[in-house]
Design a protein around this nucleic acid. Sequence first.
DNA 1: TAGATTGTTAATCGATTAACAATC
DNA 2: TAGATTGTTAATCGATTAACAATC
Lengths: 222, 222
Amino acid sequence: MAKHENVSLSVIRRLPRYYRFLGDLLKNGIHRISSRELSLKMGVTASQIRQDLNCFGGFGQQGYGYNVEALHKEIGSILGIDKGLDIILLGAGNLGRAIASHMSFDSRGFNLIGIFDVSEDIIGQTIRGIRVSHADTLPEFCRQRRPKVAMLCIPKNSAQEIADNLVELGIRGFWNFSHYDLALDYDNIVVENVHLGDSLMTLCYRVNEVLEQNPEGPQEKE
Amino acid sequence: MAKHENVSLSVIRRLPRYYRFLGDLLKNGIHRISSRELSLKMGVTASQIRQDLNCFGGFGQQGYGYNVEALHKEIGSILGIDKGLDIILLGAGNLGRAIASHMSFDSRGFNLIGIFDVSEDIIGQTIRGIRVSHADTLPEFCRQRRPKVAMLCIPKNSAQEIADNLVELGIRGFWNFSHYDLALDYDNIVVENVHLGDSLMTLCYRVNEVLEQNPEGPQEKE
DNA sequence: TAGATTGTTAATCGATTAACAATC
DNA sequence: TAGATTGTTAATCGATTAACAATC
């Protein structure tokens, strides 16, 4: 629980992956692991693991390694998974509905408490036991429940305006699936952009690259 | 169309974003832009833009800047959007169906040509005009159509085994939504992991961080 | 104690930014 | 021509890796 400010975003973004691998080890009944062993499993260097963890404190023991359960719990606590932030979903179309239905919010630090849309076809539907409400009721809802995070699965065009409104209503973080880069316009507000289209185009480049370099396919597994 | 090997992944990952912003400019009837102007819009440095573009060639003109349409087209060509790689979807549950329905594959360099699942409830459904087939028919399909890329929306447990089979069947790239890190095990195969859960947990950390540092919310917009 | 492995400092590497000569 | 802005080299910055003393 030490104060750990100024940890770089590169390090933060690796924490969930550590958490995932440690969870797997735990499930497999492994109680102890060295940075070296973990590095081999994860395909990173042992140095990086030790450096990353030591941003937050000394969780290991010389000559022994790390206790898997303790470290897993510790990283969960650093990420703030126990905090249970309230989150709302804006836009319950295909993608919003799928992710809301599919994603385990609870085990990742969030409670989904509200879903909003503007389409009459969608309003009234139930997703994960939550009734989709009209976006007009959002201000009142926010004043009552004070959610801090919003997931945006809305069209690009409306993203900026809706985000502005949500900030007025007290939203401090966005999980943004719209194809619009919100990050630029706010200070003191966190935006996590998920640009699936960009990811797909990066894949396009890389596949075409390997196809050019080696059209035949892999001769052997690594 | 110059040979441009050894361009770092950091640069590649920025290309789709340039492409997106240039597409917007084009839509807004802007025909010319300097690296300085673009840098302000995108929230990056002009230096970075010029460096990135010059990995692939000199697309600008001193004293003038860049022609938006030409640059947009050029980046599209670098990404290989015109190639139209065939892609198949494995797993047509909530998430797979949503993304398959939602994503514009065509404008990002792919043709979706097949969808496969193992659930009898899902097989026979039609998504984007494509009938969901039984995964048993996959080997035959691949031998006939030779798709090069697969999108994986399957459970973590089966991911590795299915990916192994797909590599045998000639798949060279994966767009991986399963919570399993495929990348480690193959050489000469491209994996683009989309870990939505990791993204959500990173958001969890960052929101809790700003809430601690500034519980009151932003005093003013940046 | 001896062996193992951490925590941490120092060295290396790569990516970003700044500067400016080339040139439209 | 003069002004603007690129392409490109050099400087800076940050992140990763290596090394090793501390210590369990």
